[in-house]
Amino acid sequence: MSTPEPGGALLSVSGLRKHFPVRRGLIRHTVGAVKAVDGLDFAVTTGETMALVGESGCGKTTTGRLLTRLLEPTAGSIVFDGHDITHLSQSRMRPLRRDIQMIFQDPYSSLNPRHTVGTIVGAPYRLQKVRTEHGVKRAVQELLELVGLNPEHYNRYPHEFSGGQRQRIGIARTLALRPKLIVADEPVSALDVSIQAQVINLLADLQDELELTYVVIAHDLSVVRHIADRVAVMYLGTLVELADRDSLYAAPRHPYTVALMSAVPIPEPSRRLQRDRIRLTGDVPSPLNPPPACRFHTRCWKAQPVCRQTEPPLVELTPGHQVACHFPEDVPPATPAG
């Protein structure tokens, strides 16, 4: 298997689409489609952390499941490490699953309650028929130690652990086969604040130690700023902004990103009344029948007639900062562009 040089694209996605057909009636004929993911283009470089953020229903989880090929894309292509994996069959995909692993959101439902920790974390070795040097047990115990769990807990069951520890078990299982890419779907959102910080730090340490590449799916913008190198903001199945973390947080250009950031509560009561908050009204429209052209125009305070007629392309406004908007926000003069 070819190893791309650091800095090269490990994963690249173009025109990725996933439409779920909506069937009605006796003969289940298709009456429409939920356009969960509707045309994504991005690339993930080896060793970086890329975050997909957006509100519920924006298609970020579907994207994660497409990247790990748990779902079959409707259109577009996914190239991983030089292989086109867009339409690989289950059996052809299996050897590649070693390199692409997933961390799930809910540490309660993603671990089999009837299996011991040893069985859960050791499962990847059995499934992939990997021979470990000193036996599976030894390998699992090393993994448990790596993620900060007591290796003697090998024979315990998931219910004996707290939420944060269960998430660590899930992470240990993910790491068993030394994957290149890890897709983490809301890895910390089910955890308490103090535990969330532990897991965030653990993910960062593992990345340094094992040279991992992460695609993190999250809705919490402050967590994303902490962990990501690059951030892609999604709205109704499309990318509206894709930029380096510093550039995005210093000067968001898409009105939706601006609104998202201003909605994050700031833990400082004295500034409560001074904040200039942009209030979005209403809810995200249904992906069954998304608004035409720019999908954000129904909630955008800057919308003009052109926004209802022409879909804005994702264009690079400054190096490394792509925005899909007809009227992007100006960069504040104090901030150096790019």
Binding site: V193, S194, A197, L221, S222, R225, P267
Partner: peptide, 9 residues
């Protein structure tokens, strides 16, 4: 608690 939370501000 305050140290655990990442902050945008």
């Amino acid at each position: 608690l305050l140290g655990s939370m990442p902050r945008l501000d």
